[in-house]
Design a protein around this nucleic acid. Structure first.
Lengths: 134, 134, 134, 134
DNA sequence: TTTT
DNA sequence: TTTT
């Protein structure tokens, strides 16, 4: 069991790339307000979100900077080799579902009243995330 | 909204430390099996879990290596300065609740049939996690 | 492990009552949009939410009809005796935490920029919900 | 956003039926231990779980009474007409994913080391749940 | 820098 | 290496 649920705002426009086997990957950063603001502590947490396949493409089409969304996903740990040769560890969220939140018109809305997108998980694509998306 | 739910096994005995203001912090690593094992991909994800206050102490008392638990928490991003002067970013799970899972006798069981522990969140302690727990 | 996460709109102003031992209980109904609208199917699910203690009071003060919120809680099953003598079963959500969602000004906002309320769970109050809140 | 996460035990062997359009539906009841046992209160909550399509079939094949599982799903409200002509409301969990929990050998294990099953959501089937599964 |  |  591995489930993450977040409500937050997209920090910058998502970026679309593709792996060397031709799969789409979208990455973006999500700012999630902390429930208890504390002196000298950040007001939000920032998480890296990764989406794959057709969902990646839809995200880049519909989700822009500042957009508020609710999402579910799974937490993923990954390591990569830093430029200095050391191993680096990263924890990110692999997107499963997302919903638009807030006033529908405070952001470019998707076509036809769509307010929820889930393009299926297409797990076959996931073997080849051979490069660190962040 | 920021919620994480994980079911996994504790990788090594949790470590108990305390901040310079005297608060207890426990840290441990949790191995969470992936739902879809894939060739050439790790079988599990590994996450760093942080617990505070009295909950930290209870965890170190009752939870050991190999123990299977279900937990809820919140995802937290944190930065710290690496030895080489660069900024490093870490994403970890701050523990909220946990339950013992699996056969009650496959591990040192807590006293009196306890199978769920939630010592309250004691959010006042959280301001001073000035050192990276990992 | 028992966790529910919902984002939806409050259907009617919450109602405040108190148990015969003097504990506050707030109940309200939450409309949650379905992700996949289907011909001839309802567009939303409607759930009964119960809040206890001080949280109940805060909710009745700050949350009104139409307000969009994100909440976490636990699912609870309960039985009661119907007027015809038969046993009736009810499944409801016991509120744990909630956040205000959407434009802060589309609804009477709480004092001082508050955007998240969690008054503690006060589990001691829970023994005496001897009457069906719904 | 509508997500439920439960860890519990299956109360009776799941039942397989099919709708009048030929879709498979499995229903079962899940007992979820309460975190805080209280005098005079039930020790567990009992929830009705519904699974559709191929997932329904797999469940009836692999999951029996007493099996401990972790699941995610969505909460659903539904109404039906009781025999006495009155409208009855039901809240149940529509299964999305599940994992086997606990010792792998305390129950008939699925073939080939499978420890997680997710047959896809097959949302097209969902329009015709025209009869109350419970 | 890994548990079963 | 941040959104409102």
């Amino acid at each position: 069991m591995n489930k993450v649920i977040l409500v937050g705002r997209i920090v910058r426009d998502p970026e679309l790339r593709s792996t060397n086997t031709g799969k789409s990957v979208a990455t973006f950063s999500l700012a999630v307000d902390r429930r208890f603001k504390q002196e000298g502590q950040p007001e939000a947490d920032f998480f890296n979100i990764v989406a794959w396949g057709r969902q990646a493409e839809v995200i880049c089409q519909y989700l822009g900077k500042g957009r508020q969304i609710a999402l579910t996903g799974r937490l993923q740990s990954r390591s990569y080799d830093a430029q200095d040769g050391s191993k680096r560890y990263v924890t990110e969220v692999v997107l499963e579902e997302f919903d638009f939140i807030g006033s529908k018109n405070d952001s470019p809305a998707p076509a036809d009243g769509l307010n929820s997108l889930d393009l299926g998980d297409d797990f076959s694509l996931m073997a080849d995330d051979d490069e660190p998306p962040f």
